[in-house]
């Protein structure tokens, strides 16, 4: 097992390694970030607002004189955790529905696909804005909004994979053997979807991080006193004229997370080739 991981890491390109490092870094921060914070993220500890980098406050202070580093370390868990959960939900639901439609009767398949096509043609930001307007922005509802918004995309990819795989000779062989739909979906089709869907999961995670931080930036996402990285940018927007680290650092933090995931996905071995059906 460890050998497999080691050889996998060795196969990564330079940019892939950078991506992997960034992803691992942010996952760690999401877990242990709050324990590393030098100050209470809610406390007014600096003498000055919008202070620049100092020894006491490595990333400066915010518009109320709070420690930016501490706020960042505790905000990361919202950005990473919420997006991870939402992406998992979206991908799992998308894959499950896709498998269901791949082995179910024609009318069900067509109905579900038509409905998903409808949802896809509502641009994702618009869709999530409408949803937020109606259900509000508590944390569980934000998670739900993000996963509903990105589930149809995941369904579409998973379905096209599943439909292609369902045409493969080995699936026909299983049918002729008399296997049931559940066996075919789970044992014959699903294992061959995992690799491409993993890449899609990464992409969806990036989209959701951007969506949630965008919502927070607009004041429609994570609500105070909780704060994710997007909220940090929003609350410090008045520091823009002074080029305060309080506004730039959270934005850069998000960028390193999303760019990292993207670089990692792009370097995944066999991506694309597998989808083309070659060995």
């Amino acid at each position: 097992m460890t050998n497999a991981i080691r050889s996998w890491v060795k196969a990564l390109s330079g940019s892939g390694l950078i991506g992997l490092a960034l992803v691992v870094f942010w996952l760690l921060i999401a877990i242990i970030g709050p324990f590393l914070a030098p100050y209470d993220p809610g406390a007014f500890v600096a003498h000055d607002v919008f202070a620049s980098f100092t020894g006491a406050h490595l990333l400066g202070s915010d518009y109320l004189g709070r420690d930016v580093l501490s706020r960042l370390l505790s905000g990361a868990r919202y950005s990473v955790g919420l997006a991870l959960a939402a992406a998992l939900l979206a991908s799992t639901a998308g894959i499950a529905l896709a498998l269901l439609t791949a082995v179910s009767p024609r009318w069900l398949d067509e109905g579900v696909s038509r409905f998903m096509d409808t949802l896809i043609s509502i641009p994702s930001k618009i869709f999530s804005l409408v949803l937020v307007a109606v259900v509000g922005s508590s944390l569980p509802l934000l998670l739900l909004v993000a996963s509903i918004t990105y589930m149809p995309g995941s369904f579409r990819i998973a379905r096209s994979l599943a439909v292609n795989l369902a045409q493969m000779d080995y699936v026909q062989v299983a049918r002729c053997r008399g296997e049931g739909a559940a066996y075919i979906a789970i044992r014959e089709i699903l294992p061959n979807m995992i690799h491409p869907m993993l890449a899609d999961f990464g992409l969806r995670f990036v989209f959701i991080v951007l969506l949630l931080s965008g919502l927070s930036f607009l004041g429609l996402g994570v609500q105070p006193p909780d704060a994710d990285l997007g909220s940090l940018v929003r609350e410090n927007i008045s520091g823009l004229g002074e080029a305060a680290p309080a506004i730039l650092m959270p934005a850069i933090a998000i960028a390193t997370l999303t760019v990292g995931v993207n670089l990692l996905i792009d370097a995944l071995p066999g991506r694309g080739r597998r989808m083309a059906g070659k060995e």
Binding site: M168, D169, Y170, Q172, V173, C176, E188, P191, E279
Partner: peptide, 15 residues
């Protein structure tokens, strides 16, 4: 009754 397909590459599940 068993059926054996032409193309063994696609008739065997790579997983």
């Amino acid at each position: 009754i068993q059926l054996v397909f032409q193309n063994a590459d696609t008739a065997l599940n790579p997983a």
